[in-house]
Nucleic acid binder design. Structure first.
Lengths: 134, 134
DNA sequence: ATTATTGTATTAAGTGCATAATACAGCAAT
DNA sequence: ATTGCTGTATTATGCACTTAATACAATAAT
């Protein structure tokens, strides 16, 4: 017996969309959770079935996301025990740096495509930050 | 008779990838060409077939991209004469503003997801710009 | 008037992603 | 030893995007 409020409280904080492959979006979310410390090195992950259920996704899809993450060395598997976050903290740090670098590069590229110089882009960013507090 | 160098010189400057719908990527490229002035208001566009050929894409796919652009008011069609860039310069300006705003918003969002504050992000961007010239 | 070019529509096929429904093997807990 | 949970594999179905091969209607050019 579960209490009525104990159904699925930790449900969809995955905000998955249909405009890109779901397994990619899951990978991105997991990577964020890893580099931001929501998952710590060595942490045990929920089972494929549980996570699939929580994300309202097919187990195959969740499985695929983890397969890819494992290929990248971010998680490792103990065949019948579960999955765990890598303990390679250097790898995690590198990933975070790379994600930040990629974000900056992509931003500058798209702004330049729109015709803005680096200086103009910097200025626009400053103004955007100013707007936020106002 | 064509000279040997007159084959398809203006070929693939479309760099389309397979990780996202092609018709979306085409729309993005066309929008960029419009807001950056490579196409001017009222300009006549090449035919669907020619553009499809140039981009190495199926005519249906190119057609779809244009249908969407037309829905957004960026191009208009003369039934059997061809397609033209909108002459609504305000719309074009608004689009450019929106694209820049979206780019900035997305950048700030992704950096915050990585744990960086607005100030930190600004600093990282400055450093990135400094690195470029060095 | 004829011809070529325009946008547009249709049908069939192939591919990748996601789902659903199972099933199996191996280890942990009991 | 049995039971339950783990990752993993398989088969079938559906959907969206893309391609291919046509075809048609309407206008511009000749």
């Amino acid at each position: 017996m579960e209490s009525t409020q104990n159904k699925k409280p930790t449900a969809d904080k995955w905000h998955l969309t249909s405009d890109r492959p779901v397994f990619i979006q899951i990978m991105e979310k997991l990577k964020l959770d890893i580099v931001t410390g929501k998952y710590l090195p060595g942490d045990k992950l929920p089972s494929v079935r549980d996570l699939a259920n929580e994300a309202s996704v097919n187990p195959n899809t969740m499985q695929r996301a983890f397969s890819e993450l494992e290929r990248e060395g971010l998680v490792y598997t103990q065949r019948t025990n579960g999955r765990f976050i890598t303990e390679d903290t250097d790898l995690i740090d590198l990933l975070k740096q790379k994600m930040a670098f990629d974000s900056i590069s992509q931003f500058l590229k798209s702004m330049r495509q729109l015709g803005f110089s680096g200086e103009e882009t910097l200025q626009l960013l400053k103004e955007a930050l100013k707007e936020e507090t106002a």
